[in-house]
Computed example of a mutant assay.
Amino acid sequence: MIGEKIREQREMKKISQYAVAYAIGMSQAAYSKIERGETEVKVSHLYSIAAFLEISVYNLLPEAMASGTFEGEYLLKPLVVKLKELWYGWLVKRRMKHMQQKDQ
């Protein structure tokens, strides 16, 4: 189900599997398995994919998971989510910049 949501978002933005896979540091074949639901996606990859697609990680999660809260720490949740998005977004941008420099 997560793989389907990832595919939907990627296709809406007209981005290839190869581009996403390269940006997050994996092979296109491994990335394809995530979209097909053959492999579970690592949390770090999920955040990197969301950052590359410029969406919230919650857009990629099933509703039951996206609406969950940290027990007793619900006030920290937005901060933790934002920090992860910033971190993985920075990693993706760094990788894309490196890729562009290689192509030149």
Rank of each mutant, 00 (worst) to 15 (best):
N59Q: 10
E8M: 13
K97R: 10
R7H: 14
V81F: 12
L75K: 05
D103F: 06
G3Q: 00
K77S: 09
S32R: 12
A51D: 03
R95Y: 08
T39L: 07
L75A: 04
E4R: 14
I55R: 03
Q17Y: 09
R95T: 01
D103A: 12
V80I: 15
E54P: 00
S27V: 07
A50G: 03
I34W: 07
A29K: 07
H45S: 06
M12F: 14
S32F: 13
K97S: 00
E4Y: 13
N59T: 07
S48N: 05
A23W: 08
T39P: 04
Q104K: 15
E63L: 14
E38T: 02
K33M: 05
W90K: 05
V81M: 15
R95K: 09
I24F: 08
L76F: 11
I2D: 05
L76R: 08
S56C: 11
Y58V: 07
M26N: 01
K13F: 12
E54Y: 02
V20T: 15
E63D: 13
Y88A: 00
E63F: 11
M96R: 02
K102C: 09
H45F: 11
W87A: 11
A21C: 02
L61E: 03
K82E: 14
V41R: 05
A50M: 11
K82Y: 14
P62N: 08
A64W: 00
M1C: 03
Y18A: 15
W87G: 05
A66D: 09
E85V: 09
H45T: 00
V43Q: 14
A29W: 06
A50K: 04
R10Y: 14
G25A: 04
V81L: 15
L46I: 01
A66R: 13
A19E: 12
W87H: 15
Y88S: 07
Q9L: 15
K82M: 11
Y47D: 01
G68I: 09
E11A: 13
G68L: 11
A19W: 05
A29C: 06
L86G: 03
S56I: 00
G3P: 14
K14D: 15
G25N: 01
K82V: 04
V80F: 14
Y47S: 00
M1N: 06
M12I: 10
A19M: 12
E11K: 15
K102R: 00
Y22S: 05
Q28G: 05
K82D: 11
R10P: 14
Y47K: 02
A30I: 02
K13Y: 08
G72W: 11
Y74Q: 11
G25S: 05
D103Y: 07
L75P: 01
L79A: 10
S44L: 04
Q17S: 08
K93E: 00
A66P: 14
S27F: 02
K14F: 11
L86K: 14
S48G: 15
Y31V: 04
S48L: 09
E35H: 12
V57N: 06
A19K: 13
M26P: 07
G37W: 05
S44T: 04
G68F: 03
Q9H: 13
K82L: 10
L76Q: 01
L91G: 06
L86W: 13
E85P: 11
